[in-house]
Simulated assay, not measured.
Amino acid sequence: MKTLKILVGVAFVIAVSAFAIDKVSSPKIDGGYTIGDTATDFKLKNIDGSLIALADYKEAKGFIVIFTCNHCPYSVAYEDRIIELDKKFKTQGYPVIAINPNNPKAYPDDSFDNMKVRAKEKGFTFPYLFDDGQKIYPQYGATKTPHVYVLEKTSNGNIVKYIGAIDNNYKDAGAANEKYVEDAVNALLKGEKVLVEITKAIGCSIKA
């Protein structure tokens, strides 16, 4: 019995440690960005046909860049929350910039035409950009949809301040008691350090 208790205790410590690493460490993700890196700007096609770059947002204080798509059930589950993030923070200087990183040849549901349909159906309030040629998501190191990067605009460029999930419950917004993106942006707006800088993105793998 004593041995069993010891084993259970060790397993618990390992589980807690693993979770803590997911939340606060800052490893490179497949060669992508880590906390403190300067994110390269891009120019991608929006669903209205215009080309969008971060540099276009002259008055922005930063950005909530979200790699997402049409078909993934995790992305779909978060759509309303993404809209709410944009509505809450766009006027405070942190607009949502959504990017579809998937190859439509691998997953036709994520074609540019279907992006336009989905955005209209849901009433997206933010740009929904197509990573044509899949050149941008590898730079960031995104591996899932959704995968979030909160950037702070500085005189030295757009600095990565948070990477990971939107919150800790994709199934139920009401049950999410750790709102990582919201907390990160609120901290930046107050000039404070982001306490949880990186979490594990939960979602569908990006289709190459």
Rank of each mutant, 00 (worst) to 15 (best):
N46Y: 07
C72P: 08
F130R: 07
K45D: 04
Y107I: 14
G93N: 10
I66D: 05
Y128L: 07
K87Y: 00
R81A: 15
V76G: 04
Y137M: 01
E84K: 13
P95D: 00
I97D: 00
Y128H: 10
K144I: 01
R81D: 15
K61A: 08
S111K: 05
T143W: 01
N70W: 01
Q139E: 14
K135W: 03
A119K: 10
I52S: 07
Y140L: 07
V148L: 11
V96S: 02
I97T: 09
F130N: 04
T91I: 13
F112K: 14
I82L: 05
D132H: 02
D109R: 12
C72N: 04
T143L: 15
I52M: 11
N70E: 07
K122V: 10
C69S: 03
P108D: 04
G62H: 00
V150S: 06
I52D: 00
K87F: 00
F63K: 04
D109C: 03
D80H: 15
N158G: 09
P104Q: 04
T91K: 15
D109A: 13
F124S: 06
H71G: 06
F126Q: 08
A119C: 11
D109Q: 13
D113A: 15
N156K: 15
D109F: 12
R118K: 15
K122E: 05
Y57N: 08
I99W: 06
K153S: 01
T125H: 03
D56C: 09
T91M: 12
F124K: 09
I83D: 03
R118W: 10
S75Y: 06
K87A: 12
R81G: 13
E84C: 07
Y107T: 11
L129E: 00
I97V: 15
Q134R: 15
A53R: 13
Y149P: 01
V76E: 11
M115K: 02
V76R: 10
K120E: 15
K45E: 15
Y74Q: 00
Y74F: 15
D113P: 03
E152G: 01
P95L: 09
K45G: 03
A53Q: 14
T154I: 11
Y94R: 03
N70S: 03
S50H: 03
Y128R: 12
L151I: 11
S155R: 06
H147Y: 00
G133F: 05
A98N: 10
S111H: 00
